[in-house]
Computed example of a mutant assay.
Amino acid sequence: MTEQEASAEAVTTFADLHRAPAPLLLPNAWDHASAAALAARGFAAIGTTSLGVAAAAGLPDGAAATRDATLSLALALGNGPFLLSVDTEGGFSDDPDEVAQVARELAAVGAVGINLEDGRPDGTLAPAGLHAAKIAAVKAAVPGLFVNARTDTYWLGGGERDSDGAGPETRRRLDAYQQAGADGVFVPGLSEPPRIAALVKTLDVPLNILYSPTGPTVPALGDLGVRRISLGSLLYRRALGAALETVAEIRAGRPVKGVAPTYAEVQALV
């Protein structure tokens, strides 16, 4: 099998995971070790977390400041034993051609999918037409790349809700993104089961939901029709929290709880 054939097969496999009987649970890594450890636990597909990448580099998340760090991580992970989807924030530009170039570079190093969000760092939403143009440009440049189009209407407050669904603004945006060629859509912050089920019925592409420890379980989301469940920055934040808890226990003279990989186990991830 040629490299080009292998790449095409990987893209098809990733898309097929969104149509499997069980929803795709996509954990999000922030470096090589976290991705390798997740792959070793049997996850066939892994995403990246923009917050984890940004925080690790000492940069703000969602501010188009991590283009180089994101590409560098994709280069390190693209040939791993898993399918890689990359969080590209808003594409690191408001120029659709520049966003398409980012997509080309990611596909060239082995990424099979990207997340592309319409939220902006100032708390506003990008015009739906602009975001749709970015999606269309990416699909024209790299037709096989799985574009997961994210709308932040719930997180940023623009998605006014009605009694039987996610709200007209959310649906308007998702419809525009589907028409532009999005392969899936993502509505972080949406967690009410009736609204999720109602939204699924209006879509032609798979719905991605951000997992919340206080929201529906993975099986419950699958029963609602959700086809992809992302963990976002949760694993990164939990890892940081575990580090802080551990050092606090040590400083207080208490025994350290929890499980930590051994030195040799971490070395084996390389």
Rank of each mutant, 00 (worst) to 15 (best):
L77H: 05
L77M: 09
G78W: 01
N79Q: 15
G80F: 12
P81K: 02
P81D: 11
P81T: 03
P81I: 04
F82K: 00
F82P: 02
L83Y: 03
L83H: 04
L83T: 00
V86P: 03
D87C: 09
T88V: 15
T88C: 15
E89H: 11
E89L: 09
G90N: 15
G90M: 14
G90K: 13
G91Q: 09
F92I: 03
S93W: 12
D94E: 15
D94Q: 14
D94V: 13
D95H: 12
P96W: 13
P96Q: 10
D97Q: 15
E98L: 14
V99M: 11
V99G: 10
V99T: 12
Q101L: 15
V102D: 05
V102G: 02
A103Y: 00
R104K: 13
R104G: 02
R104W: 01
R104F: 05
L106C: 12
L106V: 08
G110A: 00
G113C: 11
N115V: 10
L116R: 11
L116Q: 06
E117Y: 06
D118G: 08
D118A: 02
D118Y: 07
D118P: 04
R120F: 04
R120M: 13
D122W: 04
G123N: 07
L125P: 06
L125M: 14
P127G: 08
P127D: 11
A128F: 12
G129L: 14
G129I: 09
L130Q: 10
L130I: 00
H131D: 06
H131A: 05
H131M: 14
K134M: 00
I135A: 00
I135R: 02
A136C: 04
A137N: 06
V138C: 08
V138R: 03
K139N: 08
A140L: 08
P143Y: 09
G144H: 05
L145V: 08
F146S: 13
V147P: 04
N148S: 11
N148Q: 11
A149M: 12
R150H: 03
R150E: 02
D152Y: 13
T153E: 07
Y154L: 15
Y154G: 13
W155I: 15
W155Y: 14
L156W: 07
G157K: 01
G158C: 03
G158F: 09
G158M: 00
G159M: 08
G159N: 04
R161F: 02
D162L: 02
D164G: 14
A166G: 08
P168H: 14
A176D: 01
A176M: 10
A176N: 00
Y177C: 06
Y177M: 09
Q178A: 11
Q178D: 02
Q178Y: 07
Q178G: 10
Q178F: 09
Q179C: 10
A180M: 06
D183S: 14
G184Y: 10
G184H: 12
F186E: 02
L190Q: 05
S191T: 14
P193W: 01
P194Y: 07
R195W: 09
I196D: 05
A197F: 01
A198C: 07
L199I: 08
V200K: 02
V200W: 03
V200N: 01
K201Y: 04
T202H: 13
